[in-house]
């Protein structure tokens, strides 16, 4: 049984059919890629699976359980963690607080603990903090833990997003263009982080990328999307040589 299965999902914005009859199967530990020209509907697919939008049609299953239509926070606690294309961080909070926050649904000290600062809360907050530190170490920004987001360079902010998503203990990690706007050096570092996270935590990764070099290197299977529709699916080699992909995507002058 696939870890995450999407069946014939479609979505309309007003009259625009942004996603059409989309299906997906991700196995445990797999790295999958999703490519396609601007406006193809990639981010919309992420938003649909993670519950930000409700699909007009179709079903989504995580480990066989239907999660279609659940609110995003529940889907996230079921095991779908994500980052955002344009980074959605909390501008007044510190790096450490970001990562701790993603443990929200696992907090058991409750309002009583929050109001009265019980020993249980103290203990739990310390545990969360320890875990947050280990994740920050994994993505290489433990030394920035106390910094406010606004003071961080761009690359570090991207890493905060990944560490934060990891703190939700995802079974599938959704990365929406994690290398957008990065220089070649940062790009290589980011690829290393993705590999490391994948190896250390053994989770499945679903990756949206504009730069083909990245998807080709990281992913086992790649889907190509155009106008909300999958036009090709296969291994990097297959995708690279698929005339439809070349036509829809590469033909438009994108640099490989």
């Amino acid at each position: 049984m696939a870890l995450l299965r999407v069946e014939k999902m479609s979505h309309e914005f007003g009259g625009l059919r942004a996603v059409n009859n989309y299906s997906l199967e991700i196995e445990k530990g797999q790295i999958r890629g999703l490519i396609g020209p601007n406006g193809a509907g990639k981010t919309t697919i992420f938003n649909l699976i993670t519950g930000i939008y409700k699909p007009t049609e179709g079903e989504i299953y995580l480990e066989g359980k239907k999660i279609t239509g659940l609110p995003p926070n529940q889907i996230a606690s079921h095991g779908l963690g994500r980052t955002f294309q344009n980074m959605q961080l909390w501008r007044h909070m510190s790096v450490l607080e970001h990562v701790k926050m993603a443990r929200y649904s696992r907090i058991t000290y409750g309002l009583f603990g929050a109001f009265f600062g019980t020993a249980k809360r103290q203990r739990e907050e310390e545990e969360i903090e320890e875990m947050a530190y280990s994740l920050l170490k994994m993505v290489g920004i433990a030394h920035l833990a106390g910094q406010i987001i606004l003071n961080l360079p761009y690359g570090a902010q991207r890493r905060v997003e990944i560490a934060r998503a990891l703190a939700t203990e995802p079974k599938v990690l959704f990365l929406d263009e994690p290398t957008a706007g990065m220089n070649p050096e940062e790009l290589i570092q980011m690829m290393e982080i993705v590999r490391k996270v994948h190896k250390n935590l053994g989770l499945a990764i679903f990756l949206i990328e504009h730069r083909l070099k990245v998807v080709m290197e990281l992913c086992e299977i790649i889907q190509t999307l155009n106008f909300g529709q999958v036009i090709a699916e296969g291994t990097p080699e297959e995708i690279q040589n698929d005339p439809k992909v070349i036509d829809a995507y590469l033909g438009k002058g994108t640099v490989i």
Binding site: T50, I52, P71, P72, N73, A76, S77, R82, F84, Q88, L89, W90, R91, H92, M93, M101, A102, R103, Y104, S105, R106, R164, A165, A167, T168
Partner: peptide, 13 residues
């Protein structure tokens, strides 16, 4: 306050 969508996606009710 800073980003409700992100909060939701990070399991915050």
């Amino acid at each position: 306050r800073d980003d409700e969508v992100a909060a939701n996606a990070m399991t915050v009710n």
